[in-house]
Design a binder for these strands. Sequence first.
DNA 1: TTGCCGGATGGGCATTTGCCCGACCGATGG
DNA 2: CCATCGGTCGGGCAAATGCCCATCCGGCAA
Lengths: 318, 318
Amino acid sequence: MSHGRFSPESTRLDDAARAGWLYYVAGNTQDEIARKMGVSRQSAQRLVAMAVAEGLVKVRLDHPIGRCMDLAAALRDRFDLQICEVAPSDPDAPDLLTGIAIAAAAELERVLKSPEQRIISLGTGRSLRALVEQLPRMSCPQHVIVSRLGNMMEDGSATPYNATIRLAERVGAPHYPYPLPVLAPDARELRAMQQQLGVRNTLTLCARADISLVGIGQMDMTAPLHVDGFLPEPEIRELIAQGAAGEITSWIYDGDGRIMDCAFNRRVASAPLPANPEKPVVALASGTAKLPAIRAALKGRLITGLITSEATAERLLA
Amino acid sequence: MSHGRFSPESTRLDDAARAGWLYYVAGNTQDEIARKMGVSRQSAQRLVAMAVAEGLVKVRLDHPIGRCMDLAAALRDRFDLQICEVAPSDPDAPDLLTGIAIAAAAELERVLKSPEQRIISLGTGRSLRALVEQLPRMSCPQHVIVSRLGNMMEDGSATPYNATIRLAERVGAPHYPYPLPVLAPDARELRAMQQQLGVRNTLTLCARADISLVGIGQMDMTAPLHVDGFLPEPEIRELIAQGAAGEITSWIYDGDGRIMDCAFNRRVASAPLPANPEKPVVALASGTAKLPAIRAALKGRLITGLITSEATAERLLA
DNA sequence: TTGCCGGATGGGCATTTGCCCGACCGATGG
DNA sequence: CCATCGGTCGGGCAAATGCCCATCCGGCAA
């Protein structure tokens, strides 16, 4: 079929998509694909591999595995959750993000399919990024996507893992990046920042969000806040000593899930977490390291939804 | 992990789902799955196969091409087509010819690449012209290109959009223009014309063609036959009233895809359309105006192949 | 108890797939 | 003009997969 007669970039991906379709959907063997597309067997293989690598093929398992459903029901019951999904774990890679990303994507897709406007607010983190990658491209101009926290460090550079922009461009919805850095220099400047009109608007959207998806950060030396440079070692040690258990959109909370009254939190510029939220606040979190943080968040009802892995669900219920 | 320890029915599917998950999502090899689930390699394979067979595994191709291939497969299935291609539509210009021209060119290129002789017969129309423009220059002296209908009006002047000549010169193949006008003055003269030796030869070639590419004409006031002056307004109105739905190489057919028994068809000098063709007769057609004509042609099996646009494909399946 | 039957099991093998590697092609720069 | 370099191509081979088939197991009826 077509060689590089047209724009070589796009055609190559198109061919990859075509090969992927023939392989995964139509069930052709790579030999047949090669013949049908007029390329060598190896090229066909490369095209299929590219379709996978570029994330064109999405596999979803449409079966509530009994054990996971049981765990999800138990979690919902025990922690009074509005939303709970448990994805199977690979025993050897129990913290693989793909599983919960797919489960969360399915959940979010349901929201996105609604014809009425939905305000969707997002935190940051690797799990949210993975979630976005699992979503199909859609056209949902009726919804609004808003970030619950900034993606700038104090010096103005951007943090990675910004899910909001990617989500917005993938589903074709208007989006509101968070117009402040993660941290303000001090409490006084923070108040000044929050007076700005654009900020107040974004904060209102966050407060009205129909669903919020957030990550959960642990509080140890591998804490995202520490790794990303927001929380120097002495400060995080101090906080841990004072009982810090976890963090959601940079708000640090203690073992009972209460937002701590500390210097750091007084500088946090993220949208406030609703106390006793009516609309679901769903956390995506899994892994041994995050267990105490998840437990505390559940205990303090900082979250009313949880999407996690089988292994983590088991430990939470133990 | 779990063998058939519990209700054998449900757990078996659960195991299948788990195996499928480990395979497709976590990317395990079947050996690893076997080890993790404590079954033999073959059983793991069977579980994965079952997950697929039971439809637990859903593969989605997140690329415009993917949607097109789904539509093509559905059309092939629904209308029992030998060849079907669906080109992506630009939502802003859904009836642009370029897309289907490229798809058709790819199809034709494959035929042209064959080292054995192929007889290729062509109709007329803008889509066929566009198709030819998309072909690269090649050297295929082994093939034969033949026109299925004339390009002369009754007064001897030529109609535009003659694809045969352009195709022949582009791919360097011998070609046979159709040695008659589009319409004979009446049925008697038509019979006389068809006795000529050269005509009989051309008709044989058309009947033996390994692939035929044709356009489809709609039957309304924008009908190519009317616009090009072959079908004056009173006559076309009359035909529409009698149920004319479309036209292929000037043969007018009704809503069920049956060639109509009418004065016009008795004067048509084009090669006859094969009834229940064995070799593919592929139509290039897209656009809202042509929908009824395409539907009827499919219904009557006047064509066994279709190359169309995404938008048109959707409407045909609706 | 015995024999039969349906379904699951794993050995074994042909096919298919993934991937390394040397060859080749076209663009770029000296 | 040649050297270089990034990228693609296809040969070849080891690993992974699909599947046939002989065997085994448990239930069941004679």
